[in-house]
């Protein structure tokens, strides 16, 4: 393992389902995510991409192997501690936006900050406004999330994933529900912010264009990473 990896996993095994429907979803997967790097995980549906993402995001427990966050094994930690680390170090973006419907764009971005509890109310509002401005939604701070378009919702989700200034952003097909234009725009936005802030980004995607724009591409097949390529120069 290289020194300086924010997030890594080693020999991850994961079974899903029970009895006859039990599936060996991950078979000895190892991966490292370094600061400032952008990783794409690609592969056919059901190959274990999302499962890997949830395990790396400390939302799911591996049946074997270990997950390291800043060189510390974390898979065995109690649920509360995992929740704290998710809140502090990891930002999530999902395909279907998953905004809180009853909240405005600004309030959605403030939700992770409230849990972290480091900023007073006004500072949280200012920071949320700044993040929404960075994703081009400064005029829609008070707009209820259900009244935003799909592209706008995804940009709010990006701002929210960055709310606590995480070390790593994990995105599960973040552009899968957007048209080509919005898809490209959202990815570029995310990539720029991540690289500017020396964060790391790992995204699961089916979009070859987006995968090609990442620093690393990890190809998965039947629960294994069968190949990892660095982006072709030029």
């Amino acid at each position: 393992m290289k020194l300086g990896a924010f997030l890594s996993c080693q020999d991850i095994e994961r079974y899903l389902g029970e009895d006859e429907s039990r599936v060996h979803a991950l078979r000895g997967v190892s991966l490292e995510v370094e600061p400032g790097s952008v990783h794409a995980v690609v592969g056919p549906s059901g190959c274990g991409k999302s499962t890997l993402l949830y395990i790396l995001g400390l939302l799911d427990h591996p049946d074997g192997g270990s997950v390291m966050l800043e060189a510390e094994a974390v898979s065995h930690l109690p649920d509360d501690e995992l929740a704290r680390r998710r809140n502090e170090f990891i930002g999530f973006i999902f395909q279907f936006h998953f905004l809180m419907e009853d909240f405005t764009a600004q309030e959605n971005v403030m939700i992770p900050m409230r849990r972290l509890g480091r900023l007073p109310e006004t500072a949280m509002r200012d920071r949320a406004a700044g993040l929404l401005e960075a994703v081009g939604l400064s005029d829609k701070l008070q707009r209820a999330s259900r009244h935003l378009s799909g592209g706008e919702q995804q940009r709010v989700a990006i701002a929210r994933a960055l709310a606590n200034d995480p070390r790593v952003v994990l995105a599960d097909e973040p552009t899968g529900n957007l048209d080509t234009k919005n898809s490209h725009r959202a990815f570029e936005l995310l990539k720029n912010i991540v690289q500017q802030n020396q964060m790391a980004l790992l995204l699961v995607t089916h979009n070859p264009a987006i995968a090609e724009a990442c620093d690393w591409i990890h190809e998965m097949m039947d629960g294994r990473i069968i190949a990892s390529h660095a982006r072709r120069s030029g």
Binding site: D80, A83, R84, F94, I111, R115
Partner: peptide, 14 residues
């Protein structure tokens, strides 16, 4: 869905 997203953002079970 909201509960799941809250959990992903670091909200504990309690």
């Amino acid at each position: 869905k909201e509960i799941a997203i809250l959990r992903s953002m670091g909200y504990r079970r309690r």
